[in-house]
């Protein structure tokens, strides 16, 4: 029993699916943001796995995942700031109550 590329990809796929399910079903917007982070992490795992086991192994995948981590951190910061601003105005963080555009 050895660890191959496919095992890493399967873990990443499962992680991505869990994140997607959480992002679609959870009510609290902070948890939705966390689930999006989980999906980004799954993508990072894919990039790093391909940087070792891919057809052309190299450092590019790791550099890419570092950029990905940076952008994800920026996204999390802005997301939480928007949530706090929204909470101050509407005093809710539930995504199903943020429906002003639907009315």
């Amino acid at each position: 029993m050895t660890v191959t590329l496919a095992s890493y990809l399967l873990v990443a796929a499962f992680l991505f699916c869990i994140g997607l399910y959480g992002a679609l079903t959870k009510r609290n917007a902070v948890v939705v943001l966390l689930c999006i982070e989980l999906m980004l992490n799954a993508v990072n795992l894919n990039l790093v796995a391909f940087s070792k086991y891919g057809p052309q192994p190299g450092i590019a995948g790791q550099v890419f995942s570092l950029f990905n981590i940076t952008v994800a951190a920026a996204e999390a910061a802005v997301g939480v700031a928007i949530l706090i601003a929204l909470y101050r105005r509407r005093s809710t963080v539930n995504v199903d109550e943020m429906d002003t555009l639907k009315r």
Binding site: N28, V30, L33, A73, A76, A77, V80, I84, Y87, V93
Partner: peptide, 14 residues
């Protein structure tokens, strides 16, 4: 990110 999310939770109603 975990600490940031904890702040986000603590600053809002949960």
């Amino acid at each position: 990110v975990s600490i940031l999310m904890l702040f986000g939770i603590m600053l809002t109603r949960h």
